[in-house]
Design a protein around this nucleic acid. Sequence first.
DNA 1: ATACGTAAAAACATCGACATTATTGCATTG
DNA 2: CAATGCAATAATGTCGATGTTTTTACGTAT
Lengths: 234, 234
Amino acid sequence: MMTYSNVTIPDNGDSSALKVVGDLKQDILTGYFEPGEKLKMNRLKERYQVGVSPLREALSQLLIEQLVVVENQRGFKVHPVSREEMLDIYATRAEIEALCIGLAIEKGDDEWEAGILAAAHTMQKFSDMIETDPQEWERRHQAFHTAIARGCNSPTLLQVRRSLYEKASRYRNLWLKKNMANSLVFDANQKEHQQLIDALLKGEGDSARALIRQHLLSPSRALEKTPGLEALSG
Amino acid sequence: MMTYSNVTIPDNGDSSALKVVGDLKQDILTGYFEPGEKLKMNRLKERYQVGVSPLREALSQLLIEQLVVVENQRGFKVHPVSREEMLDIYATRAEIEALCIGLAIEKGDDEWEAGILAAAHTMQKFSDMIETDPQEWERRHQAFHTAIARGCNSPTLLQVRRSLYEKASRYRNLWLKKNMANSLVFDANQKEHQQLIDALLKGEGDSARALIRQHLLSPSRALEKTPGLEALSG
DNA sequence: ATACGTAAAAACATCGACATTATTGCATTG
DNA sequence: CAATGCAATAATGTCGATGTTTTTACGTAT
């Protein structure tokens, strides 16, 4: 922490490496670095203004999350994408989400239900703005689904869920990059959300699970068909 | 790879860091480093005979897998254990395994069934040796369950499964360290295995899922009751 | 003349030594 | 006895040495 006279540098107490992890993850998830692209140390040093040690540390962390791959003495590459992996991630995500919901209905309490309604409200109020500020809408949409899943009350499971969300969001972002236009196709179906809430509050686990599978699988179908993802060949 | 005259140095093609990741993971999983223990660089340097750079890299990878934690500028510690986390991991693992089995029954083909029978045979032949070579028996036991899960045909899901297995095996090892004696309590119940196989081959998903939940949850009940794990306080 | 193979050179990744910065423990003082 | 400052310890980051991979340039053979 460094302070000059009266200015306090926003020196996040975090180590330099931790900050890089976040930035680098963001850059991969948003597609700034393309799938399969070689990550040259010099370029990364310039972009993030740090030495190689923090970089190697950051890259090592992303390694386990499967966002980058390393070849023996040939450095790091952005994890390549493929149709198969995309479908597999979305399918797994759908199952995990269904699992969370099933458990949440069993275990969920009043606070859980309240949280869902609150998040739903915050999301629905923003319906008009989907096209204006899709970033923020996605944030609220995600918050809504997280409020539901949270009811499973299992940190371990929720962590798995989060990791899958991140992997999926990479494909989502790659797709959005190519199809700026009609991003609303993605998951703007408010009717499904209402049906889901109804099923949850009534404790209808089976139909809730079916609904969420539908809800999460449609994007992957959209992604699969889209013509813009030649990148998905390898 | 480096060769002198007639001697070929066993220069593992792998980078030094990769090797350390494996060794370090082993040492944490087997309890050589105790939960919550501070991992001092000097000690690690001595033990693995490498510099700090590979060490930091290795630790960074374990960070994401939640086997170590890092405190701001205070270095790395072995991830602490707790009864709650243990129960949560085992419960999640049971659900994930049930999920794998459910999908496997839907999708599994003849090859899958054959793999199960082969692994079951390999395992059962070793029944007598449980007490002689528990290491090897655990290996075969695990191979059996993996053969079943593999039928879900989803790399992503299987990876989640593996990660949970590793986390659970840490608790398992900590327990074994304290209770050397009757390790057979753990998962030696051959009857359950046979019931599981029967259910799988008949395609009875519901009972297969119920069986696997039972099978995976009993160890956690044993762990919970065991008196030797005072360490599990924090 | 072109294509292929080989050898030299440039680029790069990996690792360890050193310097910097932060934290912890202890002593000294109010 | 508490608080502050100083010294020892430890973690983080930068840099340079070493070995490996890739590219380029050149020579030879078809």
